[in-house]
Design a protein around this nucleic acid. Structure first.
Length: 313
DNA sequence: AAGTCATGCAACCGCTTCCTC
DNA sequence: AGAGGAAGCGGTTGCATGACT
């Protein structure tokens, strides 16, 4: 026996909504709200529609402040970053883009952005002499995290987005501003504050949180001193690395936890198989997300439900 | 001009999660 | 505690439109 249908399929209208139906639904919700029961709503409104259909129409099209049309570069960046971080969790991604719906973002990714990224990736693959730490885009439907980079030297990986420049590695502080601009949208304040030390921190985990009085309670126990110029990288709590040397072809990273030092070339980064930023375990990602919930006010989680569910209002 | 193909997007489907009783 | 129902969510479908032949 299958699941009971949510409505009488034979007696509900399907397909595109007419302007009259839109007006009816909008007027009713403006006046009375949804009443917390979408299934009962169509009857109250006088629409021969499934409650689910009404809900979708309202959330994706009719509700106020919905933004349709062209996505900006900044929005592209955020979508790529979050997709790299959490996969196809469209509702969470949508929560970071005011006015955009999960459906919109999903469609945009599937029809345009994914191809755009793949084209960039292909272009970078053809230029091996170019500084390419990584470039990869996973297949369309997998929800596993990935990391890749675009043509502007912006890197998308599970701990956030950052821009790379050789001057950054050689300790030019002026590049740090642009470095953090891309991170700005979802970065924890405690992470940002690390900029003062020219130590770049990715990821949240349980290492740094804002305290309730607004001060930073930075529990990051292993922030390291810059070893190469002013630049070093701290990647998550479990993966602490710093750039200790940089040639035109290779980067020498020091793992502060193990004390090990290793060289990674562009080629090694190409598939992110052994990279220190990689987050392969979905459970870890969930943990990261729920940690962000307590640290990062940019994410609008509804505590009454689940930490990962996003409120629409 | 007509037919075919590609693309974008709104809407649907069905599974999972959450809430209430 | 658990059953049933509703909401939430992501994958998929199908239609409208435009581009191409």
């Amino acid at each position: 026996m299958g699941r009971a249908p949510c409505c009488d399929k034979a007696n509900v209208k399907r397909g595109p909504w007419s302007p009259e139906e839109d007006a009816k639904l909008r007027d009713y919700i403006d006046k009375h709200g949804t009443g917390g029961n979408w299934i009962a709503l169509p009857q109250k409104v006088g629409l021969k529609r499934c409650g689910k259909s009404c809900r979708l129409r309202w959330l994706n099209y009719l509700r106020p402040n919905i933004k349709h049309g062209q996505f900006s570069d900044a929005e592209d960046k955020i979508i790529c970053s979050l997709f790299a971080s959490i996969g196809s969790r469209w509702s969470i991604i949508a929560s970071q883009l005011p006015g955009r719906t999960d459906n919109d973002i999903k469609n945009y990714w599937n029809t345009k952005l994914r191809k755009k990224m793949m084209a960039m990736n292909a272009s970078l693959q053809r230029k091996p002499q170019q500084m390419t730490l990584l470039s990869i885009l996973q297949s369309s439907t997998s929800s596993s995290p990935l990391s890749f980079r675009d043509s502007n030297n912006s890197y998308y990986h599970p701990h956030g987005t950052f821009s790379y420049s050789s001057s950054l590695l050689s300790g030019n502080n002026s590049s740090a501003d642009s470095f953090f601009q891309a991170q700005e949208s979802f970065m924890d304040p405690a992470q940002k504050c690390q900029l003062k030390d020219s130590t770049f921190v990715f990821g949240g985990e349980a290492t740094s949180c804002s305290s309730s009085d607004g001060s930073y309670n930075n529990q990051m126990s292993h922030v390291i001193e810059p070893e190469f110029g002013d630049a070093s990288f701290v990647v998550g709590a479990d993966h602490l690395y710093s750039v200790v040397e940089d040639t035109s072809q290779e980067f020498k990273f020091s793992n502060a936890a193990s004390g090990g030092v290793s060289w990674w070339t562009d080629k090694q980064y190409g598939l992110w198989e052994q990279n220190p930023f990689d987050y392969g375990d979905l459970e870890e990602i969930k943990q990261l997300i729920s940690t962000n919930n307590s640290c990062n006010n940019n994410l609008l989680f509804d505590d009454k439900k689940t930490q990962e569910r996003v409120t629409y209002y």
